[in-house]
Computed example of a mutant assay.
Amino acid sequence: MFNKTRLLTPGPTPLPERVRLALARDMIHHRKGEFTAIMDRVQEKLRRLFGTEGPVLPLSCSGTGAMTAAVYSLFSPGDRVLVVEGGKFGERWRAIAASRGLLVTSLQVPWGEAVRPEDVAAALEADPAIRGVLLQVCETSTGVRHPVREVAERMAGRETLLVADGISAVGISPCPMDAWNIDCLLTGSQKGLMLPPGLALLALSPRAWERAGATRPGCFYFDLPGERDNVLKGQTLF
């Protein structure tokens, strides 16, 4: 045990022994009944994990892939979004939004500090055309937890979607999606879930699903309505 490799990083995290043993099992086919039974069983638990009544989509990608899927599925080129930028991953939201051709307003927050909900509200008042607020539940690069619940309260009554990166929060810090009125919550496998990297999870609110249905997908691979339809059948799109 003294020679065991130990990861003292924010992610990937060390794998519990039972996870390592599960990974040693034989492969099964992903279009057969055995896989469907696993998906159905896991889906119930994922909904509890996210605190949502809706489906939770598994995506075979990193957490950044889920961030990309959210931006490319909920917004169209030319849409205006507000990015809370208080660390490296706030910067990543901005970069992904820019790659989609969105018009980005950055709300700069000093690294090591949390955004103030009243500043988000003021930015939305200043530009009513903003269609989404992108922020982290926990900014991994600084360890700061943003007041997502309070931000959502300040956004009540607006059509603006609240998109939250919970990669270093889901399973670690409470962020019940439905109770807090988060429109999109996503995470990756390699932090709180203590799994290998390469799997992401994403869920949308009913009104975010309406937006996704009205938005032309910006990417063939990240087709969230298609993923949802397959999850409801115990499958994945790809």
Rank of each mutant, 00 (worst) to 15 (best):
F2H: 13
F2V: 13
T9H: 14
P10C: 09
G11W: 13
G11M: 13
L15H: 09
P16H: 12
R18A: 13
V19Q: 02
L21V: 10
L21H: 11
A22S: 14
A22M: 13
A22K: 13
R25D: 06
R25N: 08
R25S: 08
D26S: 15
H30S: 13
K32N: 09
E34A: 11
F35H: 08
I38W: 15
D40Y: 14
V42D: 08
Q43Y: 09
E44N: 08
L46Q: 13
R47D: 01
L57A: 03
P58S: 03
P58H: 03
L59N: 01
C61Y: 10
S62W: 00
S62E: 09
S62D: 12
T68H: 14
A69P: 03
A70Q: 03
V71S: 03
V71N: 00
V71Q: 01
S73L: 06
F75K: 07
F75N: 04
L82M: 05
V83D: 00
E85H: 10
E85T: 10
G86P: 05
E91G: 09
E91A: 12
R92G: 03
R94S: 15
R100N: 13
L102M: 09
V104P: 09
T105A: 14
V109P: 00
W111A: 14
G112S: 08
E118N: 10
D119I: 03
L124R: 04
L124E: 03
E125C: 09
A126T: 09
D127L: 06
P128D: 09
P128Y: 11
G132V: 05
L134R: 02
C138G: 07
T140D: 10
V144W: 04
R145E: 13
R145M: 10
H146W: 06
P147K: 05
V148K: 01
E153K: 13
E153Y: 10
A156W: 14
A156G: 10
G157Q: 06
G157D: 05
E159A: 12
D165Y: 12
D165V: 12
S168T: 15
V170C: 11
V170F: 10
I172L: 15
I172C: 07
C175F: 10
M177G: 04
D178L: 12
D178R: 10
A179F: 11
W180H: 07
I182A: 04
I182S: 04
D183R: 12
D183H: 14
C184H: 06
L185V: 07
L186N: 06
Q190C: 11
K191P: 02
G192Q: 06
L199C: 00
L202A: 04
A203N: 02
P206T: 00
W209F: 05
W209D: 02
E210V: 01
E210S: 04
E210I: 05
E210L: 06
R211N: 01
R211I: 01
G213V: 04
R216M: 12
R216D: 14
P217N: 08
D223W: 02
G226P: 08
V231R: 14
V231W: 05
V231N: 06
L232G: 07
G234N: 06
Q235R: 15
L237Y: 07
